[in-house]
Every structure is written in structure tokens, then in C-alpha cells.
């Protein structure tokens, strides 16, 4: 579904991704793990069009999206839930969700999908008129995910959805990620919490200082000594 071939991405003169190659197949949950500053968010931003690769290809369903404007990439079916949620704090929950469907014209479909989002996240339904900035961190995460789903993505990019959440809520969010996946959306998940990410993922890539250093099936990686030492707390 998504193919990334040997991309280099820069911030000014600083190279953040060095020859990254990866692939995501339809229906998979793929996770990207790596330390702070490894380049995980940079990779997601490159896929969603916020950054342009200097070299290399990004192919989505065989078409190249590697230099396209972010808004046309959303239209093609890739939604990005950015790190830190980035909800529109000055707008209500409902308005945030409406903005998620900004490019859609099918009023009926939008209404149905909004109901689906409220089913998935009942806490948002209770707070429909509340300003997004006054939501708790967990609720903001739910809103950011719901907002992305409103675009009806076929590929959903999630950047550290568990950041700053209590363990119980993290579990809830991960259950919902699985539900979204079962409903037919392909998922690329960036996580610090490697244990948890590997537990729901089909495959994983490990990123270190801008390079993919390891990849494989999630269960293989879970039992690999290297990963255990570096990311799973050493036991």
C-alpha cells in the first residue's frame, strides 16, 4: 500500500532521515520504534507531506506522493495524528471533528462517520460542545484520532498516542487502535512504549539516528535480544 524507497530528509542542513526504506501492506498494523530524536516523527511528516524528501520515493498505491502538498495527500486517503495531539483548542469537540472532514462533500456520510466516532469514543459525545483546549490529555488524544478518522483514511499515521496518559487509558487507546484496524484501516504507529506497540503490531521497524536498523515481524522482534536490551527494559 505504501512504499518508501531510500529517502533522505533534511531540516535545513541537518539530515534527519538517511536512506530509509520501508513498506506497509494493506490491513497491517506496522509500528516504528526508536529513541528520542531517532527520526520517527520526521518519517510520518514526510509521508503526510509536511516535509519533502530530498531524495528517494514515497509511493502510495503505486502513485508517487513524495512532493505532493499535504492537503492532496489527505484527499488520497492518508491521515496523520501528529505528536502532541494538536487539536484546535479554541474550537469545540464537534467543530474539530467537522474540520477533520474538511475535504468531504458527502453530508450524509460525514454524519454517519461522526456517529461512528462518538461510538468509538463515548467520552467525546458527552463533551460535544466543550472547547477542545479544556479536555484532558486523554480526551484530546481521542479527539485527535477521531478528527483524523473523519477524513475516512485508508492509512492512519499515529504519532505517540500514549504520550502522557495513565496506564489504564493507554490500554483503552490501544484497544481502540485495534478496533480501527479491524474495521479495515491500515495503521502506522509510532511509539516509545515498544512493548505495547509490539503487542498489537504485525510488523515493526526500529529507527536509530535517521536509519532503519532492524525490521521484522512483531513477535520475532519481541523475542530478539537486541530489542530487549535497547527498548524493552532488558528483561
Amino acid at each position: 500500500m505504501l512504499k518508501i524507497e531510500d529517502i533522505n530528509v533534511y531540516y535545513g542542513n541537518i539530515q534527519a532521515l538517511k536512506g530509509v526504506t520501508m513498506e506497509i501492506n494493506e490491513g497491517e498494523i506496522v509500528t516504528l520504534i526508536g529513541a528520542n530524536g531517532a527520526g520517527k516523527s520526521t518519517l510520518l511528516k514526510t509521508i503526510s507531506g509536511l516535509l519533502k524528501p530530498k531524495q528517494g520515493k514515497v509511493l502510495f498505491e503505486e502513485g508517487s506522493i513524495g512532493g505532493k502538498a499535504a492537503q492532496s495527500i489527505v484527499k488520497m486517503g492518508i491521515s496523520h495524528v501528529p505528536e502532541g495531539r494538536r487539536v484546535f483548542a479554541n474550537m469545540t469537540v464537534a467543530e474539530n471533528l467537522e474540520l477533520g472532514a474538511y475535504l468531504r462533500k458527502d453530508k450524509e456520510g460525514i454524519k454517519k462517520d461522526m456517529e461512528k466516532v462518538y461510538e468509538l469514543f463515548p467520552r467525546l459525545l458527552e463533551r460535544i460542545k466543550q472547547q477542545a483546549g479544556t479536555l484532558s490529555g486523554g480526551e484530546q488524544q481521542m479527539l485527535a484520532m477521531g478528527r483524523a478518522l473523519m477524513a475516512k483514511p485508508r492509512l492512519l499515521l499515529l504519532d505517540e498516542p500514549s504520550m502522557g496518559l495513565a496506564p489504564l487509558l493507554v490500554k483503552q487507546i490501544f484497544n481502540i487502535i485495534q478496533e480501527i484496524s479491524e474495521a479495515g484501516t491500515t495503521i502506522l504507529l509510532v511509539e516509545q512504549n515498544a512493548n505495547l506497540a509490539l503487542s498489537i503490531a504485525d510488523r515493526a521497524y526500529v529507527v536509530e539516528t535517521g536509519r532503519i536498523v532492524l525490521s521484522g515481524n512483531a513477535d520475532e522482534l519481541t523475542s530478539s535480544e537486541e530489542i530487549k536490551m535497547a527498548y524493552l527494559g532488558g528483561h
Binding site: 499535504a70 492537503q71 489527505v74 484527499k75 496523520h80 494538536r86 484546535f88 474550537m91 474540520l99
Partner: peptide, 23 residues
């Protein structure tokens, strides 16, 4: 209106607005 909501979104966080497909 849609354009009004886009204006408020861009003025709050233009990068996040781009991710909604807002030009």
C-alpha cells in the same frame, strides 16, 4: 461557514490545519 472554520483553524495551528486538508 467552512471558510470561517478554516480561518480559525489556520490561525490557531496552520500545520495541523494542513493535515485536515485545508489549503
Amino acid at each position: 461557514t467552512k471558510i470561517g472554520k478554516a480561518m480559525r483553524a489556520v490561525s490557531f495551528d496552520s500545520e495541523a490545519a494542513t493535515l485536515m486538508g485545508i489549503n
